[in-house]
Amino acid sequence: MAVRTSRKFWSAVQTLAVLAAAAVMLVPIAWIFLAAFKTHVDVYQLKVFFVPTLENFATVFSDPYRLGDKLLNSTIVAAATVALAIPAATCSAYSFSRFRLTGETAMLVMILATQFVPAVVIVLPFFVMFRDIGLLDTRIGLILVNLAVVMPFAVWMIKGFIDGIPLDTEEAAMVDGSSRLQVIRNIVLPMAAPGLITSGIFCFIIAWNEFLFALILTNKDAVTLPVGLALFKAEEGDLWNLLSAAGIIIMVPMFILALIIRKHFVQGMTMGAVR
């Protein structure tokens, strides 16, 4: 009897701990959601109940903030980065997965190590170069540099997916006279498609959230959403209702994308070190 009571007690404690952890994780996000619909005055009181307004969203999209421009920049930069990275990564991932190459391990380690190079190290020479050739504050420049962040994830993730595709269909088609490129196009790509989409979404999130490159390499025309947050730091202090509205615009699309690919998120981040 005593054992059963203590077990019940422990299970209740655990449930409470789970709920507390969930609260700690969600409260800051929820608070931003609330603040985005509050008036300037309501933000300054810890109100949970208030009359919601959409005015903050209208304000951030109009002059002088023009968040729409930043939204467009973020979308173009992230999409172009993914559009360049995924095909290149797919080719090499296939090769790494199916063939034995001279220097294969060295190449894979080099790609892996790229992820660990501090962004601030990468950005210094690019700043100097972009300044000299006029690529500062352009989307093209930002896309180029973002490839450095995205490529290692893309190669390693896609390699993981292709590793999981059985070889027999490929071999059968080769026996039937298909060329290697036909095999890749007609057999591997369709089978790897879900993996490619997952990797693409993952890289899109990484590129979208990227901050340091955009902070240093843009200042007006090519500013992306995370850097655009700085717009709402006014002389009289941070404009929290506007910051929150901008925050929602930054995070909600990524929440949706992340939920779509949530099963593969961990695998992507750890590059196959943990499956």
């Binding site: 360049l84 990275a85 095909p87 290149a88 990564a89 080719c91 090499s92 296939y94 090769s95 790494f96 199916r98 063939f99 190459l101 190449m107 080099m110 790609i111 790229t114 190079v117 190290v121 990468i122 950005v123 210094l124 020479p125 690019f126 180029l144 540099v145 490839l147 450095a148 490529m151 290692p152 893309a154 190669v155």
Partner: peptide
Amino acid sequence: KYLLVLPSIAVVLATAIWP
């Protein structure tokens, strides 16, 4: 097999190793 790895290796060389 070497042609296939070329694009991503080039990107890594240009965007990470060069800097």
